[in-house]
Nucleic acid binder design. Structure first.
Length: 485
DNA sequence: TTTTGAGTTGTTCGA
DNA sequence: GTCGAACAACTCAAA
């Protein structure tokens, strides 16, 4: 049995067959291919995937198995230390090459680099590729060679690069080995929770490459033309909702880039072009987040602006719990937190509102918010999550702390004027007229009774007064300034 | 990328 | 028709 020159293609956060450089190059070698997924033993002090991400991964793996089966191939699933599993597989299959797409989180870089070195030392060919970013984080730099810290400058610099390379086609067939090594069943990884709370995720999402394509097509055909207007309204499906697919790598940013550029070419109207670039700019934010994380690897735990390490945070567990459960008494905040809990996702506008509320109104450290998002978001991504929270706290790149104290009532009136988002996620308020839906505590006893609400019982009073909290946050920022000078 | 508060101008309404 | 109070609508600077 000559299985010689088999290539292992190691899948991680790139659960797709289209635009997959390692697969493409493995096929070009003309030898058999074994797709591998390894569920690594969870390590302490490392950002292991959160509960919602694991649920997503479970379903994504099942989809991958189906996709591969249609290509006369299969996904070999193993568990354990990646290096020893790969060595084991190399021995079992006589493989001489391992290909994979690069990851960019600090832990992953260290980890993957060590594996690459160790494998090469044993004479194995290792090739790594860029499968998840438009540009490598180290390619984009200022004129003086330093990393960017302001988005607009970063994005301008990106646009000076040649366009990203065209996505690679889905391979027609993956040459199978003469004999398949043993694989675990997806269920054996125990990625699903013991108590099943995943209904909402399953109803809302369709993990896998097909689901990603469906979302992309829907977005291009029905939402892109109103993107810049609609994207801020959480009751409207005005955003792409591609974030979990992007995070799992079920679609690559190159595929999105080309799909949109293609649609720009087909509809040459200037307006559509504006909308497309407004959206691509968001893909740019994702690139920027990875750029920042690569150059400032300590930022998942520590503020980029070091003076913020002395910010007088309040670690009030009760308030944190109320925020997590969607019981702050501010309907727009609670609606967002409940959408998150139920679907594993939250509209971006609402993410900014709830983040501002946690950090500025409750003065709870942004790391607490980041940790909760990490566990509950199906799109939990270390780069995006870190940048987003530091942006909200005002301690990261593009710092503007004063601009980021959102008024939850004003935001609610502006972006959910008729309260349909609130009513969807907070049914106990559904009978309350629009006038009071954003601030139930201002409604008269009469109005509340009529809406069937016993405030303080059915729905909480605000856990903090926003006006008071705003002044408190401004004072806290003031002390930071004083300490500096 | 937002909110607030002050200052200004405009509008309405009743005496 | 006039006056002034009350309030709405708007602009702008500062946090």
């Amino acid at each position: 049995m000559d299985n010689h020159h088999t290539t292992l293609v190691w899948f991680r956060q790139d659960m797709r067959l289209e635009d997959h450089p390692p697969l493409h190059h493995a096929i070009e070698r003309g030898k058999s291919i074994i797709p591998v997924f390894i569920w690594e033993v969870e390590k302490k002090g490392v950002w292991n995937p959160g509960a919602a991400s694991r649920v997503w991964l479970h379903h994504s793996l099942i989809q991958m198995q189906k996709e591969l089966a249609a290509k006369k191939s299969q996904l070999i699933i193993r568990r354990g230390q990646a290096l020893s599993v790969l060595k084991q597989l190399i021995e079992e299959t006589n493989a001489d090459s391992v290909y994979w797409n690069r990851r960019y989180e600090p832990d992953s870089i260290q980890h993957d680099t060590a594996i690459k070195t160790a494998l090469r030392e044993t004479g194995i060919e290792v090739k790594t590729f860029n499968g998840s970013l438009l540009y490598e984080p180290w390619e984009v730099k200022t004129k003086s060679g330093t990393p960017f810290q302001v988005f607009t400058r970063f994005w301008e610099a990106c646009k000076l690069f040649p366009e990203p390379s065209k996505p690679l086609p889905v391979p027609k067939i993956l040459p199978p080995p003469l004999q398949w090594p043993h694989s675990l069943d997806v269920h054996e990884l125990r990625l699903l929770p013991k108590v099943d709370w995943t209904d909402g995720i399953r109803e809302t999402w369709q993990p896998g490459e097909k689901g990603a394509q469906t979302h992309l097509q829907r977005f291009i055909s029905s939402a892109i033309d109103a993107y810049s207007k609609d994207r801020d309204f959480p009751a409207v499906i005005g955003t792409s909702r591609l974030s979990p697919h992007l995070h799992a790598g079920e679609i690559s940013p190159r595929q999105i880039w080309y799909a949109l550029r293609e649609s720009e070419r087909l509809h040459s109207a200037a307006q559509r072009s504006n909308e497309i670039w407004a959206y691509l700019r968001e893909i740019g934010w994702r690139e920027f987040a990875h750029h920042l994380l690569f150059h400032f690897p300590h930022t998942p735990d520590k503020p980029l602006r070091t003076d913020f390490e002395r910010f007088p945070w309040k670690n009030e567990t009760q308030n944190l719990r109320a925020w997590q459960k969607g019981l702050t008494g501010y309907p727009i905040v609670d609606a967002g937190m409940r959408e998150l809990w139920h679907t594993g996702w939250m509209h971006n506008r609402v993410r900014m509102i709830v983040a501002s509320f946690l950090v500025k109104d409750l003065l709870i450290p942004w790391q607490e918010g980041a940790a909760w998002f990490w566990d509950t978001l199906v799109d939990a991504d270390l780069a995006n999550n870190t940048m987003g929270w530091q942006w909200s706290a005002g301690c990261g790149a593009d710092a503007a702390p004063f601009f980021r104290i959102f008024n939850p009532v004003l935001q609610s009136r502006k972006f959910d004027a008729n309260g349909s988002y609130i009513r969807r996620w907070i049914p106990e308020l559904s009978e309350l007229p629009n006038k009071w839906i954003h601030e139930p505590w201002t409604a008269s006893a009469d109005v509340l009774t009529h809406a069937g609400i016993n405030l303080g019982k059915d729905y909480p009073f605000p856990i903090v007064d926003h006006s008071f909290a705003r002044h408190r946050a401004l004072n806290a920022l003031q002390t930071l300034k004083r300490k500096l000078s």
